[in-house]
Amino acid sequence: MDRAPAAPVRRRPRGFYGSSNGKKAVMAVTGAVLVLFLVGHMLGNLKVFLGADSFNHYAEWLRTVGSPALPNRTLLTIAEIGLTVAVVLHMWSAVSLARRAAKARPVKYAARVKPQAGGYATRTMRYGGVIILLFVIWHLLDLTFGVVNPKGGEAMPYDRVVAGFAPDRWWVTVFYVVALAMVGLHLRHGMWSALQTLGLAHRYKALKTASTVISAVLVAGFVAVPLAVMIGVVK
């Protein structure tokens, strides 16, 4: 019988971000930033139900908030940079941790592994994250830059929304609904998971329920807009 091989020599991860716990903490904090953004984004979206003026005025306010003390778009640009940094760090850490995980199990199990803890949302995190990224790219091209929007980038925000989710463009709405369901699953695991990673998790049942409820409310709030336009409630 062979002797067991000596422990493979690995580069010892250095520093806070070198450790798996450090990367996880970065994911938790950046994830929290993105959740806060989603809450604001969803509430803003709902202004579409208050009419074109209310919605357009809100879009304008995002650009002029802080004015005249600050030049237009100052706070918006700061938020945009912050969100971009958060997304990049979140993804960078996720890829790095996923690669580490793949290396930790070079030989897969022959038997089909039966998940023992349930957690469907848990198993969607990595590919779901990629779907969400693709969705965000489409979403920015659609409603921010207007590249794939029938009205283009120059039209008023309300008109872009109404044109983008027009009934004959039902496939756009379907794509949004599927992607938002993915966001919901991502948050359902992500929110309580972030608290666990930061060492703040207690009373798991309540935490998981809260994660599920908040995710559901966010998804419902987001999905309401494209659906309302598609069925003609908002026109």
Partner: peptide, 19 residues
């Protein structure tokens, strides 16, 4: 935690499979 990383174990994603 550093030794755990150095040994080549992966990071936790809170799946709960372990428990």
């Amino acid at each position: 935690v550093e030794q755990m990383d150095a040994e080549g174990f992966g990071g936790c994603t809170n799946t709960g499979e372990c428990t």
